[in-house]
Amino acid sequence: MLKNLEVCIDNIESLHYAQQGGATRIELCSSLALGGLTPNVGLMKLAARHSRIPVYAMIRPRQGDFFFSDDDKEIMLADIHAAKQAGLAGVVVGVLNADSSIDNDLLREQCQATSGMGITFHRAIDQCLDPMTALDIIMQHGCERVLTSGLQANAEAGIPMLKTMVDYCGPRLSIMAGAGVTAQNVARIVQETGVTEVHLSGKSTRASHMTGFSRTAYMGSADVDDFAIPVTDPAKIAAVLEALR
Rank of each mutant, 00 (worst) to 15 (best):
H81R: 10
V55Y: 04
N154V: 03
M58G: 04
F67P: 00
T120E: 02
A78I: 00
T114M: 06
T193K: 07
D226K: 02
S30N: 13
L147Q: 05
D226N: 13
A134Q: 10
S221L: 14
I59D: 05
N154I: 02
A134I: 06
P171S: 12
D105F: 03
A155F: 11
T133W: 05
M44D: 10
S100T: 04
G36C: 13
D70A: 06
T148L: 05
C29H: 12
I75K: 05
S201L: 04
F121L: 01
D72K: 01
S214T: 14
F67D: 10
G64P: 03
A157G: 00
V7S: 02
S14Y: 14
I12K: 04
V41C: 01
S101W: 11
G118I: 03
A33N: 13
G118Q: 14
R60T: 09
A177E: 13
F68A: 01
A78H: 02
G194E: 11
R145K: 11
Q19A: 08
C8F: 09
D233A: 03
L77C: 00
R172E: 11
Q20N: 08
A98E: 13
P39Q: 14
P230W: 13
M1F: 06
A239V: 02
I189F: 03
V55Q: 07
F68L: 07
A217R: 05
Y17V: 00
M139K: 11
L96N: 01
V224Q: 12
N97L: 10
Q19S: 09
L106M: 13
A243P: 00
A217E: 15
V240W: 07
S69L: 00
L107N: 11
C111I: 14
M44Q: 09
N154W: 12
M58W: 12
H141Q: 15
K45P: 00
G194F: 08
S149V: 09
E156H: 08
S204K: 10
L46R: 13
S14I: 11
R215A: 07
A47W: 12
A113N: 07
S100L: 09
A177I: 09
L37C: 12
E109R: 15
A83K: 01
G142D: 14
G158N: 10
A157P: 00
S14H: 13
A222I: 10
A98F: 02
L2M: 10
A47R: 05
Q140Y: 12
N154F: 09
Y168D: 14
T232L: 11
F213Y: 15
N4R: 06
R108C: 08
V195W: 06
E144K: 02
N11P: 02
R123S: 03
I175E: 04
E197H: 10
T24R: 05
L162V: 05
L77E: 07
